[in-house]
Design a protein around this nucleic acid. Structure first.
Lengths: 185, 185, 185, 185
DNA sequence: AATGAATGAGAATTCATTCAT
DNA sequence: AATGAATGAATTCTCATTCAT
């Protein structure tokens, strides 16, 4: 997920991982400090609060998706099928290789009630994702159909990630990607 | 003052609601006691720990689904279409009228890593749900197709509940029910 | 230790046993109720507080010693040697057959600082014990020697009970009794 | 406010004192914190639990005895009589000048049933003490007699400390030391 | 006498945060 | 930047006690 540049980034990576697996409220500043090889107090050199880390880690992952995945829709050097294939590959790569699924999705249910900033970041992320798929499906489908497909796939992916976490089985999740591609073949 | 103020079931109802909205770790025993009009300590008369309440509330909602929704698949007085329509109506009724969506789904991502008993209860719930849909779709579709549809709908419903919570918009969620019915018309 | 007459006595027996083994502060009213097959609340029908039970259980065991052991010194049907032998037999019987040693001795160090009534009861018990031995040794030894022997044996017995509890070995404790007898043979 | 207010050792000293006087279960973390001029929570910076403090305080006092008292047996610059005299002086010094008698002895009866680690530390302490006396008495007595004397004195000292605490009278306790010395004159 | 729900104070422990060094 | 001692509020849980039934 990019090379480590700063301690700040390392902290975000480690906390994103912990939040995803253990949940936001169940992850303590000690857990984060431990994971980074720091002491609790030292974290406050980089972030002003736990909520700050929470929001920044959401933004960090969101940015990663923007850079690596959502940008594909605007890549004019690829045709429609190539776009969706690349998108699926990159998405799978993230969700399958990083333990615990989707940070923004996992936190959506836990924190969006209590922290409006978190909720907005998460909403924004999913809207960006829908928009990305919409742009790609628009190349072959009607506006209405593209709208429908993009929204449904985003929801379905989240649902299947939940099931993948529970049942330790990647098959159903992978089927979604295949289905997304098939519709553009 | 030894008059029974609160039943075990009332505590489960209140905590299920709180867990769903605020999350498990972010809900304190004080929150639960407050919601029940009791003092913190009094809760321990009914449950031996917070985890006990957590597990029992999952079981309580799971049982509600078994009784009210999953049982529909075995109701021989209804035809296939009537079954799915009743199931969708009852499901909508629960998810739309109780704030915060689906307890088992919401907690799935937050707690299943840290509490294996919670995870097993949640897995079981989703398997029961899939089985229910499978039985109904089997009446019209092949085994394979019925399997696929049931699993996909369960995941999709969870995904759409997540989106409904985020975007405060019931339309997408309601579309899933319509789609479930249409496939059996 | 006498036949059960009342629930009250049963509660005292059970709490004496628990206090001896677990300590006073580490024994809860629940523990006592459990051991008696009662519920917590029911105990308050018989005793007005935990301290009440504590004090009464000390008195109960003290009374048992008065009746069964300390009275031996005044029994004119026995000669000196018979007295000490009976006393040792009865003492051994109590300390070896009831788990955990000597209630009054065990609690002496734990509670006498915080509860003056407890402390006085325990002091009285040990003074009665010393006096008993004194009377017997006076039959053969000088006043001064009898004083010394009685005090030393009481202390030594307590020390050896402590060691018996720790090392699970009755030999050293039993030696004290033998020594007590030998001095009067 | 991050200046070190209290060292680990200071906490051990204060808790050893409190445990000795009030008992282990009757001493709260607040009591300990108060005695150290800290807040409850701050103690956890130094120790991970109350049991941890309990065990470490036992070890701390045990170590003090090893360093200051038990080591005397191996001091080849002293003759037998000098050894026992120094040992008695140092022992008296500890038991008479520190309120409440002997930590390990006081806790022996209260906690050894419920905490096996405590029990083992306490057993070890008394075995070390016996061994120390054994080595010294061996210089003048037979193996068997030395064994007997060492064990008896250790038990007797504990018994007399209990009586000293109860009756507020040091005379009996001091007699034990005199007796220990007389046997080597 | 016994029950069992409720109380309220207090227990041990955790946690986010601060700050002098 | 990092440390680590300290804070103080909050958390889970326990306990002795009360009292209507």
């Amino acid at each position: 997920m990019a090379i480590q540049k700063t301690s700040r980034e390392e902290i975000l990576k480690q906390s994103a991982k912990l939040f995803k697996i253990k949940g936001y409220y169940n992850t303590s500043m000690s857990d984060i400090a431990n994971a980074c090889g720091l002491l609790k107090g030292s974290i406050y050199h980089h972030f002003k609060s736990k909520d700050d880390i929470g929001l920044e880690s959401l933004k960090y992952i969101h940015q990663y998706f923007k850079d690596e995945i959502f940008s594909i829709a605007n890549n004019n050097t690829l045709n429609t099928l190539e776009k969706i294939k690349l998108l699926v590959r990159r998405t799978d790569n993230y969700f399958l290789n990083s333990e615990g699924g989707c940070l923004l999705g996992n936190l959506a249910l836990e924190v969006s009630w209590s922290n409006i900033e978190f909720k907005n970041e998460i909403k924004d992320y999913f809207l960006n994702w829908e928009e990305t798929l919409y742009k790609i499906y628009k190349e072959k489908y009607s506006d209405k159909k593209a709208q429908e497909l993009s929204k449904e796939f985003v929801a379905l992916i989240q649902g299947e990630i939940m099931m993948m976490n529970l049942h330790n089985d990647k098959d159903r999740y992978l089927k979604v990607g295949e289905k997304m591609i098939k519709l553009l073949e």
